[in-house]
Amino acid sequence: MGDLRAYAALGTAQLRSATSYRTSFLVELFGNMGATVFDVVTVLVLFRATPAVGGFSLREAVLIVGLSSAGFALADLTIGNVDRLKSYVRAGTLDAVLVRPLPALPQLLLMDLPVRKALRVVFGFVVLGLAVAANDIDWTPGRVLLMALTPIAAAAFFGSIFVISASLAFWWVDSGELGSAFTYGGRDFTSYPISVYGGWFRGLFAYALGFGFVAYQPALALLGRPDPLGLPAWSGYLSPLVALGAAALAAVVWRTGIRHYRSTGS
């Protein structure tokens, strides 16, 4: 209870500092939504040139991009800011976080909660809603449950990727943009049917790293479509398990990273 109160206080403080520059805040709020809008517009533009991508129609593709966008936007809002860890490590701000009586990760997230990304979440879920309406889904209890869990599992999965990518800074401060290959790259990867990707690249991202289970496999299960790549029909229901696995791995990497932290400067 005490901890929750502390977190709430931290969150409110961040909200107040963010809105202390009002004009910039509003521009950023809408600007950030624009980023998600463009992801969806890209899909629409591509489908102007072709009736199908990777064997999937526009309606089906929008369901995939909707699941991916909603999950990613949710993760980006709540956890995405952990990617600033490298600047905290470089500037030594992490020291101040570590001497407070709360776990470091939630503090870091709340210290800089990117409220400006809130509208992205709204937009992501609107697209998802439209996609669900546009597809003729045969609703079974299992599919309803899957529909409810998939965006959350996707958010948990992306959140874990954010944490793991950011933890890289504990070992390699100058990792620069490397993390975005997996965070934003992962979002781009999951925005399309994975049948568009070739050979080893698809194997690596979809199955070894698990991105195939974020949007593509659940979308197949919701649509009742067999996987052209041959995975069984129930594999779409694995997405919460894959997300749990990723979260467990992220926790281990984070803890190891904190132990490995070498504070710089005096």
């Binding site: 502390a6 709430a8 206080a9 931290l10 407070r100 009586p101």
Partner: peptide, 9 residues
């Protein structure tokens, strides 16, 4: 200071 009061309970 007020925030720290919450953080340190």
């Amino acid at each position: 200071f007020e925030l720290l009061r919450h953080i340190y309970r």
